[in-house]
Design a binder for these strands. Structure first.
Lengths: 208, 208, 208, 208
DNA sequence: TATGAATGAGTGTTCATTCAT
DNA sequence: CATGAATGAACACTCATTCAT
């Protein structure tokens, strides 16, 4: 109608707008984690963010758009938080151990949202790339790690690389799920130790 | 006077009733697998079963009740179909291989419904026992297997039993998910071989 | 279709049929009294009568037909049970007292169904004659009584006959409702005495 | 963070909202009076109020909530509209007459809704206090009136106070019902005169 | 006569999304 | 930017009634 500059949902230009947007993102993440995608109510998200129902649509085009943005954040965090730094002095075994520890930590923070994302991706194709990319990143990281170990002569790669990476990565992810999401009682140190040992033995890495 | 029968939904006494009930169960499973729990429509289930909307409620008290019954069936099948028989002549390694093969097969048939069940269990407490029992059954089976191997002197149990079982079981389950649900391209024999090898090495089982 | 003698709903020819019919009537009355007309479920009526849902329609064409029949019975009982016999030796005051006593008794047994009938009659025109006839019978009885008292010189009819009958009849009916349906705590003898006194004074009847 | 407002259905903050709410209340009253509680359709209420089906739920949590609010209004009106002012110069008899006249007037306006309320209260306990309170208010008002008359020496209270109040109040209420709801043909002045006379004679009030 | 399976129209309620102010 | 009122499609579930056996 009027030729007024129509605000594109999601591009706030004032600092107040940025704050509102952040509040909605945080609230959305909370709600998705608590009840999942389908049962999540925009009303609840808006309430938690301290804004009115209608305001939500100033910042996000739809519920799916909110999940998309929340997921982007989480996937990003997950990737960054699980990167084992180039800390000198860590041998191969210690690096695997560090990786497992970081993964379990990061999982504890992000698993609920990631499960929601995976479920929602079944119906909403626009979400699928996100999950696949994340998985791909992790798989590739594992492949790289295995390749380097083989290059360093620490293990022999007599099993197919990618399936091995998927299986071992899955072992850690699944353990994390059972432990942290389903409430299996395991001591944190026991968890890290067991996973690291199984991993090392599976690929034939002998402790230095 | 007369005892109030109050026909509990779902116990048909005629063969026609039994047929209808079975059709609804089958249709329900299909629909749940295709769209998940929340988005599943009773209308669609009834249509697929070739009965009217109202008839659904002759057999099931609610949508949740339908999922409950479908899940019971699937959980039961899953458990039965993954049992490695006492086939004489199979050594330890071959038994692990057989178990992995059976699990991957069974997973291909049942995974979608099981994921739906797990999601739905978040909101519906009546479903939770089902998922937990199933998981527990599998974990215990693995524990028993490990214990027997140790008893036979084939492996040394220097890692905590239950976490080990959870981790290795999770490795297979997760691999199955990535392969069969997410479309990772892996050759079936390669899959079985890789998982079996990783498993055997992780627990220190050397081929006879 | 076929030329078989179609059974008219409600005319049982066997003794078994008569028993079933009676059971349905009794059950129907119970249910109507407990929950009212709208919320009454045919299922519940059939259950209480110890027959299947479908059998109900062998005896009654519809829920409304059931209420019609139940009501006929109750209205009839109400009328018969409130007739003051020609017991010799009762003076005018004692006859009024007896009438009130009988009315309160009969009301205790039948009020709930009568209220249901009155409500249902608002929507279902076929029920209206029943309620109006019953009311008319009672009003006429009161008019006759007042006329006789005047004829006997015991009272002076200086008020319009019919409105007087309606008002005094209503006084007793309403009192019965508050006392017996709404749980107002009043001693039975006090109730009868008060109503009788008010009645007698209102029409100017002085005790012999 | 922010207090969750969770906008309790029904407290509009704009004038438009107030108008819509009022329209729904009015429409609700109409519909309840016409068809009763059970058969009342939200659709019809919304249509009459000129809003969409969904809007109804912006203002009322349920059909029962609507009846609750409508009833509150009516009960309040009923009580206010039947109060005999302290008009100087009215003797006892005239005051009774005025009270009867006011009651019959108020009844004509409110009876249908009150009968609906009474019926609905059978199933919905939340409605019961409303009916009981109203009845109690009226009974107490009558008791007070009788007590004052006795205090002024105009009548002798030789009958139990509360039962007398209930009976005489019931006489007027029931007469109003038969006359105004059931269509009994009575002239308005005859009605008032008959009720007032019966009342006065019943309590032994002689005209000044 | 009895049964119980089948029907399908009907109803209250929810909620993502739009929009006037 | 924010608000909150309005929308209306969607959906699970109910129940009187029908009918084949």
């Amino acid at each position: 109608m009027a030729a007024s500059p129509v605000a594109v949902a999601g591009r706030p230009s004032t600092s107040r707008g940025r704050r509102t947007r952040a509040a909605l993102l945080a609230a959305g993440r909370e709600v998705f984690e608590e009840v999942g995608y389908g049962p999540a109510r925009i009303d609840l998200v808006a309430d938690r963010a301290g804004v009115s129902h209608g305001t939500f649509y100033t910042y996000f085009d739809s519920k799916a758009a909110l999940l998309r943005e929340v997921s982007r954040t989480v996937v990003g965090e997950m990737f960054v938080d699980t990167r084992v730094g180039d800390q000198a002095g860590l041998d191969a075994y210690a690096r695997i151990e560090a990786a497992n520890r970081l993964y379990l930590d990061a999982w504890a923070r992000n698993s609920r949202l990631l499960r929601v994302l995976e479920q929602a991706a079944i119906d909403d194709p626009s979400l699928r790339p996100l999950t696949l990319e994340m998985r791909e990143d992790f798989v590739r990281r594992l492949e790289d790690g295995l390749t380097r170990l083989a290059g360093d002569g620490l293990i022999t790669l007599d099993l197919p690389l990618r399936p091995t990476a998927i299986a071992l990565g899955g072992m850690v992810e699944h353990f994390a799920h059972v432990w942290l999401d389903l409430g299996e009682a395991v001591d944190a140190e026991v968890a890290v130790h067991t996973l690291t040992e199984l991993w090392a033995r599976a690929i034939g890495l002998t402790r230095a």
